[in-house]
Simulated assay, not measured.
Amino acid sequence: MNNTSLTKQLFFASMISLLFLNCSPQLGFQFQGNYKAADETIEQEESFVQFVSPYKETMEEKMGTVIGVSEKALTKEGRENLLGNFVTDIQKEYVEKKFGLAVDISIINNGGMRNELPLGKITLGNIYELSPFDNYLVVLELQSNDVIKLAEFMTERKNMSVSGMRIYGEDNQLKEFSVNGKSVEQGKTYLLAINDYLANGGDNMDFLMGLHIKENSNILLRDMLIEMIQEKTSEGKNLNAEIEGRQIYR
């Protein structure tokens, strides 16, 4: 048995388990578990293969379902990247439609996007590869000082993608930024669309912990992406994104 076939079996086994598990999101939830490396020393169990096989075939067929078409390869290349712009725009648009909220800023950590989207047909499997984690959609309320901290963090780390904000930095220092084309206003509350991992302080974003939660949903990021892509496809729209100067660092 080679590594490729073993990896596929383990992937489909994990996917099958999702059909039987239904977990509700909680801010602060943490998973603990032990991992064993998958290599040629692990023998194939025939009874397991027979059990998994029919589910595997069904899952392969489902994962191959085409849900949209992309006009270009949406990659993670560059500080500001096409995939990040696409996902954060979609996330912002979804929250505004789903919850009727005027979202000011939408962000995602580049590391949370585990794969890129190819040119041409986009399948259900592509989205599961992009977002394999159970990350839930959250909306936080930020005050002006929180927005400044966010802009400073992004300038220093350069590992985030954003919609609704433009940032300019030099030598890891924030020089100027705007939200929806305007300077930050004292006393104004800003809405941030984000995933629960980051809202919990993940990727060293501990300054977000304890902020007021406007919406704590049970909507997975990948489900949001699938729904929005299918909706755009039904409207005759293809996937696309542009580099727009949202983040410029010298």
Rank of each mutant, 00 (worst) to 15 (best):
N110I: 09
G112T: 05
G112H: 02
M113R: 07
N115W: 09
E116A: 10
E116V: 03
P118F: 06
G120M: 13
K121D: 13
I122P: 02
T123L: 00
L124I: 00
N126R: 03
Y128L: 12
E129K: 15
P132T: 13
F133L: 10
F133Y: 14
D134R: 08
L137M: 11
L137A: 00
V138Q: 06
L142V: 05
L142R: 05
S144G: 08
S144A: 13
D146G: 03
I148E: 14
K149C: 11
K149A: 14
K149F: 13
L150I: 10
A151F: 08
A151Y: 11
E152M: 06
M160L: 10
M160P: 00
V162H: 05
R166W: 08
Y168C: 01
G169T: 06
E170S: 08
N172G: 00
N172D: 09
N172K: 12
Q173H: 03
Q173K: 14
K175A: 03
E176D: 12
K182A: 11
K182R: 14
V184I: 12
V184S: 04
E185I: 12
K188E: 12
T189N: 14
A193R: 05
N195Q: 12
N195L: 07
Y197V: 02
L198Q: 13
G201A: 04
G202M: 04
D206Y: 14
D206L: 11
F207N: 09
G210Y: 11
L211P: 00
H212K: 15
K214T: 07
N216R: 05
I219W: 05
L221K: 04
R222K: 15
R222D: 02
I226S: 01
I226K: 08
E227Y: 04
Q230D: 05
E231T: 13
